[in-house]
């Protein structure tokens, strides 16, 4: 398994590609509320992933130096998701709530798909 920094760099690249795709689709299709909701959800999901990355590094540094790490930031991630939901509820003409919810799942989909793809590559390499 690659180092956390390499892994997060790869995830960040995928998230930027997905966000760029959603922005293009928002600009060039008539489904603006759908893609605005997806952009809002994906951006929030990206922030959550970055926050988790920072807190994981902080925890491992704390364990290494014998200090105490008090949290991994779960409440903050829930709060960001709630903020995205509130924005989508407040402005239903601009953001579709269902697609905001779908956008919030983007980073987890990226993590899961990347893990599956790496697992398949490893099996193929072992098979050779």
């Amino acid at each position: 398994m690659p180092d956390l920094h390499l892994l997060f760099t790869r995830y960040r690249m995928y998230m930027f590609y997905i966000l760029a795709l959603f922005v293009l689709l928002w600009g060039f299709t008539p489904y603006r509320t759908i893609f605005a909701g997806l952009i809002l959800g994906t951006a929030t999901s990206f922030i959550n992933m970055w926050l988790l990355y920072k807190r994981t590094l902080k925890l491992s540094d704390a364990v290494k130096s014998g200090k105490t790490a008090y949290s991994i930031g779960s409440f903050s991630r829930f709060a960001y998701a709630a903020l995205a939901a509130l924005i989508a509820i407040k402005f239903p003409n601009y953001f579709d709530i269902a697609f905001t919810l779908l956008g919030l799942a983007t980073s987890y989909l990226v993590m899961a798909l990347d893990s599956i793809i790496m697992f398949i590559f490893k099996r193929k390499r072992k098979g050779r």
Binding site: M1, L7, L52, Y53, T56, L57, S74, R77, S115
Partner: peptide
């Protein structure tokens, strides 16, 4: 650390 990152992400 890497395994924890993926695990916590998927659990949440």
């Amino acid at each position: 650390r890497t395994t924890m990152f993926i695990g916590v992400g998927l659990v949440e």
